[in-house]
């Protein structure tokens, strides 16, 4: 689905990631961890083609990202659900309209039934008409997750989805991600919350990638 071959990425100054080689197999569940500023977000951005590697190759759905046109990138992103730490909503549109956005921008209709099921699944039925700024952190994160999965993507990339919520809500979001994985979705979650990772490992076979010294390594079973 996504594979990195000797990928390096450097911002103006130094190298942030180097010599990264890995594959995310279909249906796998990965955590990506590491200290803040280590490059978790950069790694995710490379995985959805917002950033282009400075060297090496990132392959998305069998295509090298450097060969993708802007429209190809748009089409690729319709197969990847992205959950941002700060959610990225359009604040002038209702929650329901925001959730339907991936459909709207591809000129497709979302079925009312799917929409209602999805709102029910994330427990936000009563807030369909609310504007994003009126929601709590946990509600926003769940709505972001719902928006990410509405077009039935193959891969879900989540950047600190539990960063701004309490433990109880973190567990709820984790449960939703685990359910998606059981439905066959490939999941990659960037987090620095080791408790969350432990909790997940109890429920599902999850692998942990750790960023240290510019490298991404598969962590041992010591967590």
């Amino acid at each position: 689905m996504i594979s990195f071959e000797n990928v390096a990425y450097s911002y103006g100054g130094g190298e942030l990631l180097s010599n990264v080689s890995l594959k995310l197999a279909p249906g796998s569940f990965h955590f990506l961890t590491g200290p803040s500023g280590a490059g978790k977000s950069t790694f995710l951005k490379l995985a959805y083609a917002e950033l282009i590697p400075t060297s090496g190759r990132v392959i998305l759905f069998d295509k090298d990202v450097t060969t993708l046109s802007r429209d190809d990138v748009a089409r690729t992103r319709r197969r990847i659900g992205i959950v941002h730490q700060d959610c990225k909503f359009l604040d002038h549109m209702t929650l329901a309209a925001n959730m339907a956005l991936p459909f709207t921008v591809s000129d497709r209709e979302s079925s009312a039934q799917d929409m209602e099921d999805l709102l029910g699944w994330v427990g936000l039925k009563h807030l369909a008409d609310a504007l994003p700024p009126q929601l709590s952190g946990g509600e926003r994160q769940r709505a972001a997750l719902a928006r990410a999965v509405i077009v039935d993507p193959d891969i879900i990339l989540a950047d600190e989805p539990t960063g701004n919520v309490d433990w109880e809500m973190s567990l709820r979001i984790l449960t939703l991600l685990v359910e998606l994985n059981k439905m066959g979705k490939t999941i990659l979650v960037a987090t620095h919350d080791l408790n969350l990772i432990r909790q997940a490992k109890a429920q599902i076979q999850a692998r942990v990638l750790r960023i240290a010294k510019h490298r991404v390594q598969l962590a041992g079973a010591d967590l």
Binding site: A74, R77, I82, L101, V105
Partner: peptide, 13 residues
């Protein structure tokens, strides 16, 4: 625009 690109909007849209 960033949000729209993130959810898969083409430039033409």
């Amino acid at each position: 625009i960033h949000v729209l690109r993130l959810v898969g909007a083409k430039d033409s849209y």
